[in-house]
């Protein structure tokens, strides 16, 4: 009995059936074996190996930028879902809904969290790539994972870019006008790009203002309702879906290629 009273509340809780059924590996991780099991048996933690080289836990070496990018992505997902409860992607309501989000909705910093988080994620992704380059971590066997990383960079920028239109203010519409007009000049695929006029039979042009890359992007010949809806869907569903797939590949390969890179 004397032994039992010494046990803390946490330890007692850890012996209960409920705790054991949720957290495998048994008890509060105290000894080496339990600590290893707590990593191995957690669906989230087993993203990591059980043991790491010493320098892999030093912020001076890792900068933690990859982890922060993922964390900010999660913040953006959650705040984005919350924003979707109030925002309607139509020309009539989009702008006023954004105003309401700041002025009428309780805890009115959700849009700030989303916007500044988006800026921060672009920066952390860049710095992560910079660190990976400077430590030569893209070298074999990690070549392909670097490539996946470049795709993730592109998707991050695309996500940020599509979100830029949604407030439907002057800043948004002109940034996207300029951006999407570049698609108009894409070689062969844009109606003002080099080579587009070659894709024609006689007088019939296949690449016109109503059938080129820009048209597919904004869903019309002019920036309007269709563009807003397309960017909304891409921003909220399409691109997050794709980036999740590539992130899974990225993380899985980090593990399979031996975790963080180490000197040979």
């Amino acid at each position: 009995m004397a032994e039992q009273t010494k046990k803390s509340f946490l330890e007692k809780a850890a012996e209960s059936q409920v705790w054991k059924s949720i957290f495998r590996g048994g008890g509060v991780p105290r000894n080496r074996r339990q600590r290893m099991m707590s990593v191995l048996n957690s669906v989230f933690l087993h993203l990591h190996p059980v043991r790491l080289p010493k320098h892999a836990v030093k912020l001076k070496f890792t900068w933690c930028m990859g982890g922060l990018s993922f964390f900010i992505f999660l913040i953006l997902t959650i705040s984005g879902i919350l924003l979707m409860f109030y925002y309607r992607p139509t020309i009539e309501y989009a702008y006023t809904d954004i105003i309401d989000l700041a002025e009428q909705v309780p805890f009115g910093i959700m849009r700030e969290l989303h916007r500044w988080g988006a800026h921060a994620m672009v920066i952390t992704v860049w710095l992560h790539m910079f660190r990976v380059f400077m430590t030569g971590s893209y070298k074999p066997p990690r070549e392909f994972n670097w490539t996946v990383g470049v795709i993730l960079l592109l998707l991050t920028l695309m996500l940020s870019f599509t979100g830029y239109l949604l407030p439907w203010d002057q800043l948004a519409i002109w940034a996207i006008t300029v951006g999407s007009n570049m698609a108009r000049a894409a070689p062969f695929l844009g109606h003002e790009g080099p080579g587009a006029s070659l894709l024609a039979i006689g007088d019939i042009n296949f690449i016109t203002m109503a059938s080129d890359a820009r048209f597919a992007l904004i869903g019309g010949r002019f920036m309007g309702e269709a563009a807003l809806l397309r960017f909304y869907v891409l921003h909220c569903i399409g691109l997050p879906f794709i980036i999740m797939i590539f992130m899974s590949i990225h993380f899985w390969r980090v593990r399979k290629d031996g975790g963080i890179s180490t000197p040979v």
């Binding site: 991780p29 600590r35 933690l45 190996p49 043991r51 790491l52 080289p53 320098h55 836990v57 070496f61």
Partner: peptide, 14 residues
């Protein structure tokens, strides 16, 4: 950053 495997390894938890 050089380390002597496996002596210089640390545990992920904690």
């Amino acid at each position: 950053e050089y380390f002597e495997a496996p002596n210089d390894k640390v545990l992920v938890w904690p």
